[in-house]
């Protein structure tokens, strides 16, 4: 009877081992957005192209869209842009830009050089909407359904793999629901 207690350390060790094994290969730095399943936070910001035009959450309602957070000062955004151009042309997905903590001239310079994949661009020089969205480093890309509810967030560069494995399934599901 008493000997059974001596097996206790073994059992504990194996249990710990299972969790450690499960943790291998997962990226521990990956964070889910808390906004998933919640509507996009209220905002009222200028359009990048047209300072007179005020944009709010109604912009993101009506159809499924990608909300891409970018800035001229962000090196990964330069890498990502080519693929966004392809997405907007070939895949016919609606991409809304969120120009994050940037200056207007810099943003225009960036777009003139690389092209403009965005249907509309929200100008957020203070990073207010970005902060409310929990953006902690550009680029980030949100999938937003037709009701303006956040369905997914990807942190980092969007490329072929991310599009096929992460974004597209979510978009298809969001389209199916509405």
């Amino acid at each position: 009877m008493k000997r059974l207690f001596l097996f206790l350390p073994l059992i504990v060790a194996i249990a710990v081992g299972v969790f450690l094994f499960a943790g291998i290969g997962k990226d521990p730095t990956r964070l889910e957005s808390v906004l998933i399943g919640k509507p996009v936070p209220e905002f009222s910001l200028e359009s990048l192209n047209d300072p007179e035009r005020r944009l709010d959450t109604s912009l993101l309602k009506g159809e499924v869209s990608l909300l891409n957070v970018w800035a001229e000062w962000c090196p990964s955004c330069w890498d990502e842009h080519k693929y966004l151009m392809r997405l907007s042309k070939d895949k016919g997905v609606r991409i809304v830009g969120l120009n994050y903590k940037d200056e207007r001239e810099a943003a225009f310079r960036f777009l003139n050089q690389l092209g403009n994949p965005y249907e509309t661009i929200i100008f957020d020089p203070k990073g207010k909407l970005g902060f409310d969205l929990g953006v902690y480093g550009a680029p980030e890309t949100f999938v937003i359904d037709a009701d303006g509810v956040v369905q997914y967030r990807h942190v980092g560069v969007v490329n072929q793999k991310v599009w096929e494995q992460e974004l597209l399934p979510v978009i298809n599901k969001a389209k199916g629901n509405s």
């Binding site: 350390p9 060790a13 081992g17 094994f21």
Partner: peptide
């Protein structure tokens, strides 16, 4: 590494238990 850790710990704790 986990395999190494596992072999070492499981073997020694089994030995311990018996």
């Amino acid at each position: 590494l986990l395999m190494l850790l596992g072999i070492t710990v499981v073997a020694s704790l089994v030995l311990y238990a018996f």
